[in-house]
Amino acid sequence: MDSQWLAAFKGKFTGNIVNSNDQFRELIEAYAIGSLDAPERAQLEAHLASGCDDCEKALQEARWLVSQLAYLAPNAEPSDMLKGRLLQTVRAEAAGSAARRQVVGGAGIPSWLWAGVAALLLFSLYSAWIAHKMHDEVAYLQQQAKIEQAERERLEAELGAAKTQAHEAMIWSDPKSKKIMLRPKDPKMPDLEAMWHPDMGLVVRGWKVPSPGEKRMLQLWLIPKAGGKPMPSMTLWPDANGKFSAMVENPPDTMSDTQALAITEEPIGGSPQPTSAPMWVGGVS
């Protein structure tokens, strides 16, 4: 093949180089149909590349003209199977493209995923709102519980005080009770009185009693008949008016075994044995 076109090139074109527009124009139709041999084709392409507008326009028309030769082909009809195969392929590719657009486009996220994210966000907001609401409710309930606890303690204290008062009143009014006067060692101090019931307990009262010294309080002692050590009992603290009333339901010793009651000033919290001289003393029997 090479020797053929070389021979043709030498034979037909040596000394007859195509070098004018008219000569190039004569090659346009053959170039458009694709029948130019290699040397002519190369020369024409170089000429077209140089920017010859006339030849370029002629080539455009020649290409259109050559395409019309397709009508020389005898009419024929492709099979329905060809159309079926093509449409099947195209539909599958179109569906794939649509799926890719859903993933990549708009953000690339499919609508169901957006819906899921939205639902998750709503659920998170709802959960946070519920948690906040529950936190408030818990805090409210805790506050209510504290109030109710304080109220219950107050009522219990009132009830206890009422019971104590009732108990004390019963001790004071019961004929079995024995009244005991406690006389002060210091004549400037007021007398104290006690009422001891053998079953219901012992009550001690005082009026205009001066407050004990700093970090000090009063403490009741039972002095045994047998001459043993004083037995510690309740502690006492006068109010701002110097008044106090205290009761011991179960004294550490029985009235019949107790010689006397005594009250001393002791450190806060009381003492297991007296640390100071008695300020008040009253004989029991």
């Binding site: 397709a70 009508y71 020389l72 082909a73 005898p74 009419n75 024929a76 009809e77 060809l82 159309k83």
Partner: peptide
């Protein structure tokens, strides 16, 4: 266009 395309290709 399938008929003319097919006719041309078949002719070739």
């Amino acid at each position: 266009h399938s008929r003319i395309v097919y006719s041309l290709v078949l002719r070739i």
